[in-house]
Design a protein around this nucleic acid. Structure first.
Lengths: 344, 344
DNA sequence: CTGAAAGCGCTTACAG
DNA sequence: CTGAAAGCGCTTACAG
């Protein structure tokens, strides 16, 4: 009856109805000083009654604040849709955003650097206040790019570099210790580390840590670089098993759930028993691990919690925070059916 | 050297450097008439050289256009991270957006109606130009809400209602025909349809279609409502197998990959052989289907392509298009190791 | 505590 | 074809 033609309700409407200035409405709405408690209450009440929500464009334009963070994932669809990693991570981010009333702008690009253009464009267009970064590469071009653009960013990574961007650092050393201690106590002495692609910084860290921690325990740790794909896990496993029954590894630590599942499948197909003839640990737990037979022993890294931590750090930096490093806590080893004493 | 203090490059900068008006720059940039070819070329060249990207806030505020679509997923994290459905769907959407230079605002909420608030808020805030809708319920409250808000929307569904919102309609009848023909030709006469929750409109359609198409082929089709979860598939399967060897179904059509995998696992655990003693089809193909043993026979619905179609329809409606219904094409049955002739 | 006014960076009729 | 100007809906010093 009142606002027939005009679709949108603005602070001008509220100001007019209350007989005060737009400025007062703005101050009241944003919880800033400059209005009396009584005026503030009247504004908030009317805004609620009218279902008022400030135009994000107007806020962004005048206050240079979008309330939006960006996530750009540059990975092959075939791999990414197979792993649960990103979906869990996104859920963690969203849990935080639901509470903090933030928004997520998401972009899935190919692996050939198209992502750099998205960071640049979104920044110039003023679409986001900051970025959450995953899958760090060595000399990752995103770090200098975002630094140059002056855009807050948090890398979820295993490397605690001091390059100015925010970093949520995974304690890979502790993760490796948990897995190696488990295998060591079962009696394994020779282990194969089937990693993901070494272009990823965290895979390099894991490889080095597996080697050093293995040596510290008197373990032989061999390494093979995989692709995260099923075929890659199958191939590495059959190659390993062809060396039997010499001094081949009795256990495989696989870089993701897919390759771990492949290892179990392949061993079983070749007539071996898991875990008696071969033990397998998956670096990341997932439904796949719970559904495969036998169920896979795997690390639960609390991915949703990690994502929340990362998002919290990012909002902190956006708000002007200066503490750029934060550490996530070590995960839990879920012992299921694919690890046991080796026969030998 | 020139723009030291001022971070952002604006059309005013371009206009100044070229000695023309802001309006001309705007026309040139947006490919609209009102500038000579020569001027347009100079503008575009300089904009490119300066790495100019228009402020999305300013465009949104003045032109009421964000270039952003919203997707709000109201599902339990445990289920959603297990299925590949949404990740594939998001990839399809993103493929389209990468080409059309559109953006995606994503929100994952709980299942208790919090999503309605997000639709309302994003609309009032002017954050998006339209919504992509999934998981239609009977009398879905989102339809009247978005209609009232005057917001373009496309529901990806199995129901071709004429309620004004856009609909990309899955041909469930054809899908059912493909699966039933396969089972029928193998010799199955009694089939169990283990559906997902019937609160979803597409599950109701599937149930009705399974019944009618089954009857048309002289098949007995029983129905059990599942939850999409592993436990649900396991339970339904063991209940079915307890009825053996009477006139129990010899095949299960399961509503998603998780329940299908559960059916195979459970049957195997109970000492039955798949597919000899029990055949299983998964309604949606996934890595899980390819990794499980035996590999699962499943429908490939071309989810990424469907998502692209839906996004295309949405942008069409946003641009003023009036054709609200579009049909997606039927998927392909991938015959693997879980379907074969029944023993009987 | 309150109001008038400038400004954010675009788009879009409207005159020339 | 081109320019001057108003307007989108907020925020934010700046006076009172």
């Amino acid at each position: 009856m009142s606002t027939a033609r005009r679709e949108r309700i603005t602070i001008s409407d509220i100001a007019a109805q209350l007989g005060i200035s737009k400025a007062s409405v703005s101050y009241a709405l944003n919880g800033r000083p400059g209005v009396s408690a009584a005026t503030r209450a009247r504004v908030l009440h009317l805004a609620d009654e009218l279902g008022f929500h400030a135009s994000s464009a107007a806020v962004a334009l005048s206050a240079s604040r979008t309330g939006t963070i960006g996530v750009v994932i540059a990975r092959d669809p075939a791999v990414i849709t197979a792993e649960a990693f990103y979906m869990r991570t996104l859920f963690g981010v969203e849990q935080y955003l639901n509470e903090a009333d933030g928004q997520l702008l998401l972009r899935l690009t190919g692996e050939r650097g198209e992502d750099l253009d998205v960071y640049r464009r979104w920044t110039r267009q003023g679409r986001v206040d900051g970025f959450l970064l995953y899958d760090e590469h060595d000399d990752d071009p995103r770090v200098p790019l975002l630094t140059a653009l002056g855009m807050p960013a948090v890398m979820v990574t295993s490397v605690a570099l001091d390059d100015g961007i925010g970093r949520l650092v995974t304690p890979e050393a502790q993760t490796v210790q948990v897995m190696l201690d488990h295998l060591h106590s079962l009696g394994h002495r020779e282990i194969l580390h089937l990693s993901g692609p070494l272009v990823y910084a965290h895979e390099r860290v894991r490889m080095q840590t597996m080697a050093s921690e293995g040596a510290a325990r008197g373990l032989q740790v061999a390494h093979v670089e995989g692709t995260y794909e099923f075929a890659s896990g199958a191939e590495a496993t059959s190659a390993l098993l062809r060396r039997r029954p010499s001094t081949a590894p009795t256990a495989i630590v696989a870089g993701n759930d897919i390759m771990a599942t492949a290892a179990v499948s392949t061993a079983t197909d070749l007539g071996l028993r898991v875990p008696t003839d071969l033990s397998v640990i998956a670096w990341d737990d997932s439904v796949l691990c719970q559904v495969a037979r036998p169920h896979l022993t795997a690390m639960d890294h609390g991915l949703m919690g990690k994502a929340r931590l990362a998002t919290d750090l990012l909002f902190d930096l956006i708000a002007g925070g200066t503490q750029v490093h934060r550490a996530s806590s070590v995960g839990t080893l879920i012992v299921r059916g694919t690890t046991g004493p080796p026969r030998r």
